[in-house]
Computed example of a mutant assay.
Amino acid sequence: MRIAVEHRTRYRFSKPQARLVQMLRLTPCDTRDQTVVSWMIGVDCDARMRDTTDGFGNAVTMLYAEGPIEAIDITVTGEVLTGDADGLVYGSSEPLPPILYLRNTARTTPGDELPSFAANSIAGSSDILDRMHRLNAALHARFPCVPDAADTGVTAAEAFLRGKATSRDVAQMFITAARALDVPARYVSGYHRDGDTAQSAPHAWAEAHVEGLGWVAFDPTTGLSPDDGYIRVAVGLDALGAASIAGTRIGPGDEKLDVALHVSEE
């Protein structure tokens, strides 16, 4: 499938900022089943941009802008060719061993309810791949209508108890539950073609490491493994570690964020 992405992030500040430093995880990498045809990141003010790679193997663009800055628009346009690999991830950059992805963070502290839910969802199964599919289906059954939305900073345990979740939340629930079952798991951010509907944030899903197969992707939003309608961009230990945009600003006042995103088949 040939997928086109138009993604604009707009920051508005109540008072001019002296300096901005942003880490952009907005560029997908080639894998066996994902080929970047064209990709461009643009900004509407004078800024220095430097491409690099982070410790997880993600393509990163560092953005540095000097003030006074009252607003900034970051735009992404590109096209990617994708193939359906039944959720299997082949040819990705893997600088870190799978065992590292057993590590929990402040966002993925399991609490009491989530490990119990995970154990119940896999009851009667001894196969790791089958267990992960069961966990994925169980999360989808519990949270059947899950939108893509901005990160609110809640933990996986908090979102699970709250009963209301976004794609970021259920992805964090999956990796938290998988780690509680002693299966390495990681958070994935990227894009998902969902008809021609405009979206308000990038999509999130998860990957679990299955011995003998490698990394396998699971999307609790659908209860299935990702197909060729997905563009894989960044991975991390949680939503914060794979955030599309993260950074700091020097200056007083508040900021307002507006995101416009359209993912379509060409």
Score class of each variant (00 low, 15 high):
residue 140 H to Y: 12
residue 200 S to L: 10
residue 143 F to S: 06
residue 184 P to A: 06
residue 182 D to W: 06
residue 155 T to G: 12
residue 192 H to Y: 04
residue 198 A to N: 09
residue 199 Q to S: 09
residue 168 R to T: 08
residue 150 A to V: 15
residue 186 R to Y: 00
residue 186 R to K: 06
residue 180 A to Q: 03
residue 179 R to N: 08
residue 148 D to N: 15
residue 197 T to G: 07
residue 172 Q to P: 00
residue 151 D to G: 09
residue 152 T to H: 12
residue 190 G to C: 05
residue 199 Q to F: 01
residue 167 S to N: 12
residue 188 V to Q: 02
residue 160 F to K: 09
residue 144 P to L: 00
residue 174 F to S: 02
residue 170 V to K: 04
residue 152 T to C: 14
residue 181 L to I: 04
residue 145 C to V: 14
residue 191 Y to V: 04
residue 165 A to T: 12
residue 156 A to V: 08
residue 142 R to N: 10
residue 146 V to N: 10
residue 162 R to I: 08
residue 146 V to L: 13
residue 185 A to N: 06
residue 171 A to V: 01
residue 152 T to D: 15
residue 195 G to T: 04
residue 142 R to T: 11
residue 160 F to R: 10
residue 163 G to E: 14
residue 195 G to P: 08
residue 155 T to R: 04
residue 155 T to Y: 06
residue 173 M to W: 04
residue 189 S to L: 02
residue 178 A to Q: 03
residue 169 D to R: 03
residue 145 C to A: 14
residue 170 V to A: 06
residue 186 R to I: 05
residue 191 Y to W: 09
residue 165 A to R: 06
residue 149 A to V: 07
residue 178 A to C: 07
residue 192 H to I: 02
residue 163 G to S: 13
residue 162 R to W: 14
residue 170 V to N: 07
residue 198 A to K: 05
residue 142 R to E: 10
residue 196 D to R: 07
residue 191 Y to R: 04
residue 164 K to P: 00
residue 187 Y to Q: 03
residue 170 V to Y: 05
residue 176 T to M: 02
residue 183 V to P: 07
residue 161 L to F: 06
residue 177 A to R: 02
residue 198 A to E: 12
residue 165 A to F: 09
residue 178 A to Y: 02
residue 175 I to G: 09
residue 155 T to F: 03
residue 172 Q to G: 06
residue 182 D to Q: 13
residue 184 P to I: 01
residue 159 A to T: 09
residue 145 C to M: 13
residue 167 S to W: 01
residue 158 E to V: 15
residue 183 V to D: 07
residue 176 T to F: 01
residue 195 G to D: 06
residue 162 R to L: 14
residue 140 H to S: 08
residue 143 F to D: 05
residue 176 T to R: 03
residue 188 V to G: 01
residue 194 D to P: 00
residue 174 F to L: 13
residue 151 D to L: 13
residue 190 G to V: 05
residue 193 R to N: 10
residue 181 L to H: 10
residue 143 F to A: 06
residue 140 H to G: 03
residue 179 R to T: 08
residue 164 K to R: 11
residue 168 R to P: 03
residue 178 A to K: 03
residue 177 A to L: 03
residue 180 A to M: 07
residue 164 K to G: 08
residue 177 A to W: 01
residue 183 V to E: 08
residue 161 L to V: 09
residue 162 R to G: 11
residue 197 T to A: 13
residue 199 Q to R: 13
residue 198 A to Y: 07
residue 159 A to D: 06
residue 192 H to D: 00
residue 164 K to S: 14
residue 169 D to G: 11
residue 161 L to A: 15
residue 185 A to S: 12
residue 143 F to V: 05
residue 182 D to A: 12
residue 173 M to T: 06
residue 168 R to Y: 04
residue 175 I to N: 05
residue 158 E to G: 10
residue 180 A to K: 00
residue 145 C to Y: 13
residue 171 A to N: 02
residue 159 A to Y: 07
residue 148 D to E: 14
residue 188 V to S: 01
residue 164 K to V: 15
residue 171 A to G: 12
residue 143 F to W: 11
residue 195 G to V: 00
residue 175 I to E: 04
residue 186 R to C: 04
residue 152 T to Q: 14
residue 173 M to D: 09
residue 148 D to L: 08
residue 167 S to G: 08
residue 171 A to Q: 02
residue 161 L to P: 01
residue 174 F to M: 12
residue 146 V to W: 08
residue 163 G to D: 14
residue 149 A to S: 13
residue 197 T to Q: 09
residue 202 P to D: 00
residue 168 R to H: 08
residue 197 T to D: 05
residue 186 R to E: 01
residue 168 R to C: 10
residue 182 D to S: 12
residue 145 C to I: 14
residue 189 S to F: 01
